[in-house]
């Protein structure tokens, strides 16, 4: 609050090739941070209560979902330049594309519905009303099913994308949030924010087949990129766990104070960026050492984070198909 006056809404600052986009959910803006200089370059106004963003299937744009203004703001995924606004997407809290790009799905957290759109046109195929605060989502590899967690009712639901009918709806525990479909396309991991664990579900029928203790407020996943390890933010505990999904055990942990939430990895795979909602910062973790090596001031309640895949800054080869799929499917 005081920060809003102190910092002011930054002067128009163009994103650079090494830019990182951070959504300041309670400030109606996004910050542009220099990845290498680890400092905020500026702030751009954006809708109201922007929480999450994803890349389009062609990798060209980032879609930022502004929940209260019912719109998606598209930025150039390389430069961060504002490209266009897609309107009449109602309360887009979470959003995702099916791996084949045919379906675009949004979860209206406040208005309690899940919307399935045709991926090429944003034409609404079906609106499925579903009580209990739909929040995060994951897709199966064949782009046939979307799995949506219902944070308030403690459930996870699976929706057939072709028919938009509910396949199953299972109660699994307190406040399920982040969801990820593992590469075997059989196991669905779901984080329980009201508990201190994640559960493994059988994606075909919603049965809970495993449970792994992580930290209080287990919330959100991000792939390490090797198809085996996933990061998990534990919001209440204030940690990020590294999970080996082959062994199903926690193989690393790092303390991130201030309600850690969304994550992204630098294209070289060396740094994990984690938003610290309460501290108005983004923490930078050295993945090899699982140690915080930096922290950047941004706006109020920073939620989504996206590292621009810019060119001309010594970036590694493009992400593997597996990683690309997980970017599309699991970006929370």
């Amino acid at each position: 609050m005081i920060a809003a006056l102190a910092v002011g809404m930054g002067a128009a600052t163009a994103a650079q090739a090494d830019g990182v986009i951070i959504l300041n959910s309670e400030e109606a803006s996004y910050s542009i941070v220099s990845r290498t200089a680890r400092t905020e370059l500026g702030r751009q106004p954006l809708g109201r209560e922007p929480h999450h963003m994803i890349v389009t299937p062609d990798g060209k744009e980032i879609l930022i979902a502004s929940t209260v203004t019912n719109e998606l703001v598209a930025l150039d995924a390389k430069t961060g330049e504002k490209k266009r606004v897609v309107r009449d997407i109602i309360d887009p809290y979470q959003l995702g594309y099916s791996p084949n790009g045919a379906w675009f799905v949004t979860a209206a957290y406040r208005l309690d519905h899940i919307d399935v759109y045709h991926g090429d046109s944003f034409k609404l195929a079906s609106r499925i009303f579903m009580d209990g605060m739909p929040s995060h989502m994951a897709f199966d590899a064949e782009s046939k099913t979307v799995f949506v967690t219902l944070q308030q009712s403690g459930r996870v639901t699976a929706i057939d994308l072709g028919t938009q009918l509910i396949k199953w709806n299972a109660e699994i525990g307190k406040a399920p949030a982040g969801a990820v479909m593992l590469p075997d396309n059989k196991r669905l991991l779901v984080a329980l924010t009201g508990e201190d664990a994640i559960v493994t579900m059988d994606a075909s029928n919603g049965a809970v087949i495993g449970r792994l203790q992580t930290g209080r407020g287990a919330h959100n996943f991000w792939p390490k990129g090797d198809g085996r390890h996933w990061f998990l933010s534990n919001r209440v505990e204030g940690t990020v766990s590294l999970i080996d999904t082959a062994e199903m055990k926690v193989v690393g942990s790092v303390r991130i104070p201030g309600g850690p939430d969304c994550m992204d990895i630098t294209p070289d795979g060396k740094e994990l960026w984690v938003t610290q909602r309460f501290l108005r910062r983004v923490a930078i973790v050295d993945i090899a050492q699982m140690k915080v090596i930096g922290s950047v001031h941004v706006g109020k309640s920073p939620h989504g984070v996206f590292i621009l895949r810019g060119t001309g800054s010594g970036l590694p080869p493009p992400p593997s198909p597996l990683r690309a799929a997980s970017i599309e499917g699991d970006r929370k």
Binding site: E26, M133, Q151, Q152, K174, A175, T193, G194, R216, G217, R235, V236, G238, P257, G258, G259, R277, F278, L279, S301
Partner: peptide, 22 residues
């Protein structure tokens, strides 16, 4: 953050009121 994590967050967590976290 200290006040929240010490006094409020444990209560919200205990009573499964995580939608009131922010």
């Amino acid at each position: 953050t200290w006040l929240f994590e010490t006094f409020v967050s444990p209560v919200l967590f205990h009573f499964n009121l995580m939608e009131w976290f922010e």
